[in-house]
Amino acid sequence: MGRVDGFIELEGVEKVFQVRRRAGLLRRERREVRAVDGIDFRVPRGEMVGYIGPNGAGKSTTIKMLTGILTPSAGRLRVAGIDPSRERTRLARRIGVVFGQRTTLWWDLPLRDSYGLVRRMYRIPDSRYRANLERCVELLDLGALLDVPVRQLSLGQRMRGDIAAALLHDPEVLYLDEPTIGLDVVSKAKVREFLRDVNAEQGTTVLLTTHDLTDIEQLCKRVMVIDHGRLVYDGGLDGLHAVGESERTLVVDLERELPPIDDVPGARPVKVEGPRQWLAFPATRSAAPIVAAVAERYPLVDLSVREPDIEEVIARMYADRSAL
């Protein structure tokens, strides 16, 4: 990413856990787990970045270090110029956090009461609190839910409630740890739209971890992939295809059933079904010469090009790493 002025900066950040395991009756074995194993990245102010990786890759550990509830074992970490673990409380006023699987809301009380506590906790001035609450209520469709006890909310409603709670104090940075987990399609769409608005209008820097790659595709230009505690990719979504050696697929309909097309350079047949054939070629190459070659040699009726599936690309990336 070059020398961007980082709003979030990590240099050689590591987190090593000591895990003690019972080995025999009294003997305990100590084992080191390197949850985060030397990570560098910078996120400029106002950017929305996807942070993805398989389970146990170190995503949540990174987020916990960024909020200051975990201290890095090594390396340098700054958020808005603040060392999170040293000045957790000062930083807390400037960041918002949503852990998708946990909640900051009071289970037994109406949503509104939890927001009242947030207001006191962050000492939000009245006018700003009212304006922010109004905006969240409108955009997240919370109007009818404000007086409902949180325990009666559906998962999607609760998540929207939690996201609003994280934004009432106008945080400059928002960490979202799986904000769409377990949500239905409509709720997911609503959450995404809201996040896009917040990022565009407030200039909030957003770091988003998720297992739902549609979140990333729809929200983030930049994506970082972490696996086994290391960054294995940091760049645009398109570049991921190049790194992941992903393939596009050319689907051709011929006039009649023919043997597999294996004489077009750069493409290989992957499937034949009657007169329809599927040819795979690297995602980085242009489809034009391949289409031309097929059209020249075969009786072509129709064709279409399918873009690679990002999930496959990433699945392949994870698989490659674990094979190492």
Binding site: T67, G68, I69, A92, R93, R102, T103, M121
Partner: peptide, 12 residues
């Protein structure tokens, strides 16, 4: 359950 993490990052 680890929910204490939520309590810990709060400025309280």
């Amino acid at each position: 359950s680890g929910d204490i993490a939520v309590d810990l990052y709060r400025p309280a």
